[in-house]
Design a binder for these strands. Sequence first.
DNA 1: CTTTCGATGATCT
DNA 2: GATCATCGAAAGG
Length: 184
Amino acid sequence: MSTSIDFVQSPVVVARALIGWTLLVNGVGGVIAETEAYDMDDEASHSFRGMTARNAAMFGEPGTAYVYRSYGLHWCLNLVCGPAGHGAAVLVRALEPTEGIDTMRQRRGMQPLRLLTTGPGRVAQALGVDRSFDGLPLDRPPFALRPPRAVCPVSVGARVGITKAAERPWRFALIGSAHLSRRL
DNA sequence: CTTTCGATGATCT
DNA sequence: GATCATCGAAAGG
């Protein structure tokens, strides 16, 4: 098992590989339980029509963050991957909370554990991620990534909440996790 | 349990 | 002017 993620790979490979890793922001976070891949030749991806002010970070260095606002209300955190300039990223859709649970509860309005980091908008809110984290490298503070302790069983399925290219099996989830945004 | 719908604003056509 | 990589509350079985 490797000790770091190679972000210079396709978003599908990275999305699969990330399941089971622990993602922390300023020491707060948990085990990645659900991810989705987005690529340049993918109609559902923000990068599909080329670089814009919003998605510029998607075309930056692999191993950095891409943060965007969703539905005018929520933030969503992506991990940029593929060769630099490729416009690929992995959306972090759910975590199993492990570190800084009290902090996450306060940020989320004292929600039950189950709803702290289940869904991309909730993950960003619980970890305190907003646009100011856009473009930041993932291998040093405020971010931290720690490898899984054991091999993780992973399922593959269709992505969530999109209308275009919805059939691509680009959603990955930790089998048996109680913190998935949708059932397998 | 499931489905529906409003909130809310940046982004792109 | 339309479209959203969502969430939470409310309504219906």
